[in-house]
Design a protein around this nucleic acid. Structure first.
Lengths: 224, 224
DNA sequence: GTCTATAAATTGATAGAC
DNA sequence: GTCTATCAATTTATAGAC
């Protein structure tokens, strides 16, 4: 099972517990929560069900541990963004990185499961929200604020709003289609087109130089 | 159970089948798919389980019928938009209408369930996608195209892209928080702020007058 | 078509030996 | 900690009477 750009964490837990958590991650990402039985997790991990219950008090606890670990992986994945390229190119890079991360199988699976089962775990939802969207928004907002300070983005909009708008524009149809599993999946060209279109729209709206943007739009949307 | 702006369809089916479908809709929207048993549906509908199986061959078939009916309801819900108000005010109204529709319990429930269980029903996903997002995008794109023709929106971007950007900006944090059930739920002020912020960002990006937009931004985002 | 009763399988979770 | 074996409850789905 491809887990995207994330790699497993080597926390100090017993090998059996590690195997159980890895097996749970694989199965939850492949089949969701409800469709995965504790029998299946134990078999996938190569341990007995009793051992599984020795490490995780319930299926809910196992799921909570899975989501929490995914969130920790996400937190370890933010990358530094330089301020020494033109703002439009920086938006293109940041947006492209973010969109490509969001459509990795691991990120999609977590999104899907949290959306599907999260209402049963209010505490977990709030933990996920703090570790995921809120953290990403803060990271983007910090970058925006610095660009504003450097005079490259208009400074009459709060950085957090600009950050959310940037992320929203980048998600576009590509993310929705991948998240839903709509066929056919978006191509690399679709991704690039989405990033380019969103970048131009964002710069037109937030660029400090106002209406000085040039360049015509491309052909009609390749998705539809 | 509030089903949002949608009302049930009066298709010609037997009363028991109608009761079964209505009960399934209520329970699926309240608890999702996996957490609802056929026993619960039969009890909620006031019929026996055998009768339920006489009308729907399986739980999957019942779920498919539920989603298909929801999609038909959605298709019957588009509304006309006038072109005789300033473009910024029109964006505010359309965006507000759209955002408020998207966070109704019915729309949220369908979104959540389709996201959660849709991968098991590829045909259903594609039908939902055509009835929901694609239709809404086409509706918005038609409005954008007319405004472009009237010279009120820049015409160097395909209407479908502009429409998707508008919808993306409007969703914002409000929709995500409602969809995930993050506490506390967004207030009416949060919704209005999101619509206002998105409207300004969209007009700055797509307004025909270029950089002539005035008005400073409001206080920091009320959601954190 | 509709019901009561039940089959057949799977589930989450546990007892008790080692 | 780890295992085998099992419990108790729930699930989807069906049999058979009316």
């Amino acid at each position: 099972m491809d887990t995207g750009t994330l790699s497993p964490l080597d926390t100090t837990v017993s090998p059996k517990q590690r195997a159980a958590l890895d097996a749970a991650a694989r199965l939850f990402m492949a089949r969701g929560y409800a469709a995965v039985s504790m029998d299946a997790v134990a078999k996938e991990a190569g341990i007995s069900k009793a051992t599984l219950y020795a490490h995780f008090a319930s299926k809910d606890a196992l799921f909570a541990a899975f989501v929490e670990e995914r969130c920790r992986m996400l937190e370890a994945d933010t990358q530094a963004v330089s301020h020494d390229v033109p703002v439009e190119e920086a938006v293109r890079r940041i947006g492209g990185f973010w969109l490509r991360f969001m459509i990795t199988p691991g990120a999609i699976a977590v999104h899907r499961i949290v959306m599907a089962e999260g209402w049963r775990f209010p505490d977990l939802i709030n933990a996920f929200y703090r570790s995921g969207p809120t953290r990403m928004k803060a990271w983007l907002a910090a970058w925006v604020a610095e660009e504003q300070r450097l005079g490259r983005l208009r400074n009459d909009v709060p950085p957090q709003e600009a950050a959310w708008h940037l992320a929203s524009l980048m998600r576009g149809e590509v993310f929705m289609r991948v998240a839903l599993g709509v066929q056919p999946p978006p191509s690399e060209a679709d991704i690039e087109h989405t990033v380019e279109s969103a970048t131009r729209a964002f710069i037109r709206s937030y660029g400090a130089q106002g209406c000085a943007m040039g360049g015509a739009a491309g052909p009609d949307s390749p998705q539809g």
